[in-house]
């Protein structure tokens, strides 16, 4: 019975909270607006916004030299997570059945193992770094740990569910994913969407001045 609840109403509820929450947060940010810049621009802001949207995915020298570990771990985690989310066979089946109505090519088993290991290692390294480095220890908030822990548990339960093909584990995985969806709009996980707004604003502001940000 609880399984039906997790598989049914709770899924729709969490998906709705996620969707509406994300839209609400984005509107709340953009609604504040920015004052029109009266200085005469050197070049168009739009081009700069687009450039920075992509260029910030590549690190500049200080990040490559002094922040090497975080850079590598960050890439491992994010790429691994995306691959798991959108290319793991159970996920594609789930998305096809519940959302899109169609599926796509999925990762072979060895590919799944590879990306999940990369994602786990990346996440753990980032978490360790957060716990151990004086800078991240000082600036991290409870929400940062909560988000990392939740993502970790979702990933762990997902891997266990796949390895054991055991229904209660699948339900546990789904339940944790639903909690994550509900928590998402109210947490730092929102960076998955707001990064585009931030990069856009910065890229545009700097391009007006003639600087490639």
């Amino acid at each position: 019975m609880i399984g039906d609840f997790i598989d049914g109403p709770l899924w729709y509820f969490s998906a709705a909270v996620f969707l509406l929450g994300v839209i609400w947060r984005l509107i709340a940010i953009l609604r504040i607006g920015v004052t029109v810049d009266l200085s005469v621009a050197r070049s168009s802001g739009a081009g700069g916004a687009l450039r920075t949207l992509f260029s910030r995915s590549l690190p500049r020298r200080p990040v490559l030299t002094r922040g090497k570990l975080q850079f590598v771990a960050g890439y491992m985690f994010h790429l691994g997570l995306f691959a798991l989310l959108f290319l793991a066979q159970p996920h594609v089946e789930f998305i096809s059945r519940r959302i899109t109505g169609f599926g796509w090519t999925t990762l072979p088993h060895w590919g799944f193992m590879l990306v999940s290991e990369a994602a786990f290692a990346g996440l753990l390294l980032l978490l360790l770094y957060r716990l151990m480095h004086p800078v991240t220890r000082l600036i991290s908030r409870a929400g940062d740990y909560a988000a990392s822990l939740l993502v970790f548990l979702v990933m762990l339960s997902g891997c266990l569910a796949l390895a054991r093909a055991y229904e209660p584990l699948r339900l546990l995985h789904l339940l944790l994913a639903e909690l994550l969806l509900i928590y998402f709009p109210f947490s730092t996980l929102m960076h998955a969407f707001t990064f585009a707004v931030s990069r856009g604003y910065t890229g545009a502001g700097m391009a007006r001045k003639g600087v490639n940000a």
Partner: peptide, 12 residues
């Protein structure tokens, strides 16, 4: 507001 919403406290 978008900046604070985006910060993941990575310390870079």
């Amino acid at each position: 507001s978008s900046y604070f919403s985006s910060c993941v406290h990575c310390g870079l």
